[in-house]
Design a protein around this nucleic acid. Structure first.
Lengths: 216, 216
DNA sequence: CCATCGCAGTACCGTACGGTACGGTTCGCT
DNA sequence: AGCGAACCGTACCGTACGGTACTGCGATGG
């Protein structure tokens, strides 16, 4: 578990990015067991020696995969338009849908499974990496949205973290864990739209001003 | 992955229960990687041959471990006393605290990590086993409580599953996943009391009758 | 045109694990 | 006592993986 050499610059060469892509693909449809160094080398048409030269270690490869994937999920800043009750609700629903779709993504599920599997081991910064680069990023977007809503007088809350925690719970509940456990993510689980709207409605009933609680 | 022979009676001999206990202990402080057949045999003072005779397979051992642990977490029936707003709130908070403490338990975390790690593989009924024996059981207790609250005119909801889902999300949010990822479960995470009360307050504001929304 | 470098491909090594086989021991039953 | 079943401890086997060393080939630069 090295990687300490490039903490703030996890960028790799295009060739190495291709390798990381192949490795992620391998991980997605095969689980951690299928993610062998020989398998990655074969899938990426590179040599094991190059893998070890570039990433130093198997754990280094895993860290690089997480950093690489996180770098692709950029959280776009919401436009700072003046919010109304309707647009706030709209933005919240959009955020909820995005969140659900990110969590349900193949790569996200595979990486979360990987990090959870490694969590029991020693240091294993994988979990905190996922936490930092994944939830914290998307949490910033939600936080900004919540603060904008409060500045506009549409939301009332004391601690922003508490409000975000509530919003997250209302949106996701244990859906994420169920998907991680392998519950068939197809079927009715794909009614993310309805789920997002219900969660946002509940959230607005909890934290919204009286005006915005008209819709149920 | 057998175990189909005794789906409704996953009981084993006392000796085998001891073995399963040792295996769980080994899993808790060592992760799946430490759960080798030789290690279990050594820790339980039994032979590998007996392990294979009793559980057939390594997967059979894992299944037996889950069933064994689930059989120890019995959900006691709440007394069907006549509910008031205060007692309903009290029962809900108690349920929330119990839920949080179960989820934060060593064995629960280890088994969830194990099942999640195996989820990417083929059939691997481990995930659905945990889901069925874990959440479903505790969900029944919550469901009964919710229905009793509705019968007493203290709660208003249409679908019981939706209400339970909301309650669960308010209580747990992403705390479970964070613990599974290895976030230090000590520290401030142990303010389960406050968390439970806040979640129940929010739930009652959402689904409670006007009378019970007095307390915040 | 040759030297050097980077890398693919592969062979190789040590280790660890799942699963099996076997000798020795205890315990219960007749 | 004698017998057989259950079982412990251990040795063993095949395999698979992480990691390393070596060979050959294509490109680049002087």
């Amino acid at each position: 578990m090295q990687l300490a050499a490039h903490p703030a610059q996890p960028d790799y060469s295009p060739r190495q990015n291709d390798v990381l892509d192949s490795a992620l693909r391998l991980l997605v449809d095969g689980g951690e067991k299928a993610l062998t160094t020989a398998g990655v080398a074969r899938a990426a048409n590179c040599s094991k020696e190059s893998l070890y030269k570039w990433f130093g270690d198997r754990d280094g490869l895993l860290s690089a995969m997480i950093g690489f994937q996180a770098s692709k999920v950029r959280t776009f800043d919401d436009t700072a338009e003046t919010l109304t009750a309707a647009t706030l609700r709209e933005h919240l629903v959009l955020f909820a849908r995005d969140l659900l779709e990110v969590l349900a993504g193949d790569v996200s599920l595979a990486l979360n499974r990987l990090a959870i599997g490694q969590a029991s081991r020693d240091g294993s910064k994988l979990g905190s990496m996922l936490q930092e680069r994944g939830r914290r990023q998307i949490g910033k977007r939600a936080g900004a949205l919540l603060e904008a809503g409060r500045d506009a007088g549409l939301l009332v809350f004391g601690d922003r973290e508490d409000a975000y925690d509530t919003l997250y719970g209302l949106i996701v509940s244990d859906l994420h864990l169920r998907m991680l456990l392998g519950e068939d993510s197809g079927r009715l689980v794909k009614d993310f739209g309805r789920r997002a709207e219900k969660a946002v409605s509940a959230f607005l009933r909890l934290y919204g001003n009286e005006k915005s609680s008209a819709m149920s």
